[in-house]
């Protein structure tokens, strides 16, 4: 797996498109895609939104992440870093933030490469691309 991360609006999707020669229709949007489609996709963007939708649908995102690792180990995942900042007041927001962190650690651990876009500049923080 390849994991592309960074803050919002950093150009993560554009980076992935260019770096891994992805076509637009090869990139699923975690905000609206079918859950099952993730297991056969080439790339999933907005994985933090996917996690939010899984929570809303009472599906355990950690179990789902482990299933991705088993069934689609070549997947390119793009996810926002959302864990920095003040701890949210609402319990659901805290839970969402923590689950994104936990899933992120699992994905990063299993990825051959992790690329972090910071100030628009890609940094390979694990492995090689």
């Amino acid at each position: 797996m390849i994991f592309v991360i960074g803050g919002v609006f950093e150009g993560k999707k554009q980076f992935a498109e260019k770096q891994f020669s992805l076509l637009d229709d090869e990139i699923l949007d975690g905000e609206k895609c079918d859950f099952e489609a993730v297991f056969s996709a080439k790339c999933v963007n907005n994985c933090h939104n996917l996690i939010k939708r899984l929570i809303n649908n009472k599906i355990d995102p950690i179990e789902f992440t482990r299933e991705i690792i088993l069934r689609n180990s070549g997947l390119i995942l793009i996810m926002d870093e959302i864990g920095c900042g003040i701890i949210p007041i609402e319990r659901d927001d805290r839970e969402y933030r923590e689950l994104v962190g936990k899933c992120g650690c699992i994905i990063a651990e299993k990825s051959e490469a992790v690329i972090r876009i910071f100030c628009g500049i890609p940094n390979v923080i694990k492995g090689e691309i």
Partner: peptide, 9 residues
């Protein structure tokens, strides 16, 4: 000093 966001390890 070790820093980072929520559940970052």
């Amino acid at each position: 000093l070790v820093t980072g966001g929520s559940k970052c390890g």
